[in-house]
Design a protein around this nucleic acid. Structure first.
Lengths: 217, 217
DNA sequence: GCCGGATTAGGGATTTTCCCTACTGCAGCT
DNA sequence: AGCTGCAGTAGGGAAAATCCCTAATCCGGC
């Protein structure tokens, strides 16, 4: 039987090395590549055609969510297993809708990670037991959010503003930083929020965490 | 020569396992314990008396900063090497004042981590090259014992409110959640900010990132 | 007993945000 | 060429949130 060919996409070198060591210790798993951001993860996935991409959700340049979406269209045969620290249901649903084949928490034991890799490589789906309950009950509970999603992507300017808001800046401070009128900032904020179906500042912070916006100095 | 005895304090199991594998591959380094939160890190440090504690800054229960402060008073012989993803200078200085012997970024290659462990175990100080330039001011006088960390600690209620603010909730929303008057929330916020010398919502978010408040579901 | 800190809260002024509207430039489609 | 859509810019006025000052209660410590 062939080994499972895995591509690791994770921005922290130390963590990445650790994952590599864990995977390399398995006789049936092979690490064929590494990427430190979402953009190169996609490039390498196209080139190497791995069985599984082990994808950290928060990465620079292109976050795990968008990278997953892109991969699921350009390389539908590549399974994406998302690795994250959040067990919040919102992220889970977004990721699954984006085409992720599985969802493993960084808090989970490595044995689970390995199990997940083997499951998705075999064509299955794997959800971490710690969150699996949330997806069944979750969809109904969040019926108020409707089918949502599929909203359009925010523009560059809008993302920029949303990021600064999540970082705690006021509209006025953002206007100063970007050399804009406060009014313009308000519009970017409102449009960005509308596109993402957001209802308040909390949603912006949640989104920012998912995007990895709060982790780069 | 005896091996360097290391205690790992890191809340993510997968990451922790990876670190362990990296360290165990070294002939001169020995992993004598692991902790998944700051509180148990301190307990284990007291019990095991390691040479070095490899401390993630953002952990549940007691974050790396406070755990470092506590360790530097209760176990001054234990060297604390902080492992973080932030290269922001504010965190660096806070950590050094708290008594950390070193500072390594998760983005750095494992070789640097190993070098750092050996350096601090030998009684030296190690700052990641990526941030070393930021401490130019003789700030790190290393009079070691306390100095000016001071500013009083925020109370439980105050921390609770600051955390919710960082998460993007408005004072009103917080008041509802905690079943308080908006006015009370405002006071807790103001008092907490005063104690920490904060000047705006940005500072709250920065603090929250350092505390690891934004990482738990 | 008195003092300081934690927790609770109100009044009033100020600041920020929200909602609606509007113009420009550019790209794509008819 | 004309139309349509969207990014980017911005204003006016209303609504909401925040800030500053004051103040009560309770509690533990000197």
């Amino acid at each position: 039987m062939d080994k499972v060919r895995v591509l690791i996409a994770e921005d922290h070198l130390t963590v990445r090395e650790g994952l590599k060591l864990i995977l390399k210790a398995q006789p049936d798993i092979e690490v064929i590549g590494e990427a430190s951001d979402g953009r190169s993860a996609i490039e390498q996935a196209k080139e190497l055609n791995p069985d599984v991409v082990l994808m950290d959700v928060s990465m620079p340049l292109l976050n795990g969510l968008k990278a997953t979406q892109e991969l699921s269209t350009c390389c539908p045969d590549v399974k994406v297993l998302t690795l994250t620290r959040h067990k919040d249901e919102g992220y889970l649903q977004q990721l699954l809708r984006a085409g992720a084949a599985g969802y493993v928490l960084k808090q989970s034991p490595p044995a689970e990670l390995l199990h997940a890799i083997r499951s998705v490589a075999a064509g299955g789906q794997y959800l971490d037991p710690a969150v699996v309950g949330k997806v069944v009950g979750g969809y109904v509970a969040h019926a108020k959010n409707k089918g949502v999603v599929a909203k359009s992507e925010p523009s560059e300017r809008e993302s920029q503003v949303l990021r600064l808001i999540a970082l705690g800046y006021s509209n006025k401070e953002i206007a100063t930083q970007l050399e804009l009128s406060v009014k313009t900032v308000e519009v970017h904020k409102a449009n960005g929020m509308r596109k993402l179906g957001m209802g308040g500042r909390i949603d912006i912070v949640r989104y920012a965490i998912l995007q990895g916006w709060l982790h780069e100095s």
